[in-house]
Each structure stands twice: as structure tokens, then as C-alpha cells.
Amino acid sequence: MTWADFWALIATLDGEVTEESCQRLAEELSRRSVPDIIGFAERHAEALYRLDQEKFGSLPVVDLTTGDGSPFPQSADVFLYTRCAVVASGQAVWESVFFDVDKFTPYTSTEYDGEWLLYVPDKAYELATGEEWHRPTRYCFESYSNRDGWPHLRT
């Protein structure tokens, strides 16, 4: 799947990550070939992996503070779901955050949760084949897996 095809499919979300919008995307994707479903999963994993950087992951959650009023850090899961929300917002937003970290900041809000986007490739595969998919992708999208994005975590 080309990046253009991936972003065209993401655009069908209109920036909205809900169970319903992601179900519609999974249904759309399931009408394509299995290689396209796999290609979507690969592009999605890569897009998330590229966002897996300390400059984004170290940002606090914008609308939460700790008991003493300190900034509330993103957990690994929150950071993953935040990255999904950025991807769901489309190519222009995704590209812009690399040049301006401040454009990533609003997505750390508790108003944004892109978790449902994670399940789209699996759901599409299941709809297309009738089988559950335990998929490996070239890029790991879990938080802190991009060693280049987190230089101090390198071993």
C-alpha cells in the first residue's frame, strides 16, 4: 500500500477516532485485498513508530496535573493512543508535528484517544478472511520501541 492510499483511507475518519468511525474504516479496508490490509497495517505501524520520540513522549498530559500541581506525564499507553490520534488527524497534521512539537501537544489532552485505530487492521483482516490475525509488522508501534527517537534508552 502506498502512503497516498494509506492517508486516503485515514482521511475517511475525518479526524474522529471512535469505535464507529474505526469500524467503518475496517469495513472499507476489508473490501480490499489481503495484501492491502497488510500494507495498511505496515504503514500504520510505521507512522506510529516515527512518532515514537522523546520530544513527543515527554510532553505532559495538557489537562491533568498531579496532586501537587505538577505536570502529569503520559504513560506508555496514553502516549500510544495519543500517537494514534495524531495519525487519525491526517497526513498534514502528522507531518506538521515533526517540524513543530507544539502541534503535537493538543493531542495529549484527555479529549483525544486514538486507541480504536489500533484495531482497524485486525478487524479488517477478520472481516475479509473470517480468521483472527496475529500480525507482526516491520515496525513495532509500542511506546519507546524507536531507539533513534529515545537516544538515552539505547543499550
Rank of each mutant, 00 (worst) to 15 (best):
L153P: 02
K123W: 05
G39R: 13
C22F: 06
D122P: 04
G130H: 04
Y112S: 06
D68P: 10
W7V: 13
F56S: 10
H152A: 08
D77E: 14
H152V: 05
A92V: 12
L13Y: 07
L59I: 06
E16M: 11
E131A: 07
D113G: 12
A45W: 00
P151L: 03
L153W: 07
V120N: 04
T155S: 13
G69V: 13
E132P: 11
H134Q: 14
V120E: 03
L118H: 02
A85I: 01
V61E: 12
E126S: 05
P35E: 05
P121T: 03
V87F: 00
I38F: 07
R31N: 12
Q74N: 02
S89W: 04
K123G: 01
P60L: 14
T155F: 14
A47K: 05
V101G: 01
R31S: 11
E28W: 08
Q23I: 05
E46F: 09
G15I: 09
V97N: 00
L25M: 03
S33Y: 09
A26W: 02
P35G: 07
V93N: 06
E27H: 08
E115C: 13
A47I: 03
T18M: 06
T66F: 14
P71N: 00
V97C: 03
V120T: 08
L9W: 04
E111K: 05
M1I: 05
S96T: 04
Q74C: 02
F72D: 03
I38C: 05
T110S: 10
R83Q: 07
R147Q: 15
T12G: 13
A41K: 02
Q91I: 10
P35L: 10
T65D: 11
D77I: 14
Y139W: 15
S58R: 09
Q74H: 00
Y119P: 05
S30C: 06
L80W: 10
K123V: 04
F104C: 04
T110E: 06
P121W: 01
S70F: 10
E42F: 03
P106M: 12
E54D: 14
A128Q: 12
F99E: 15
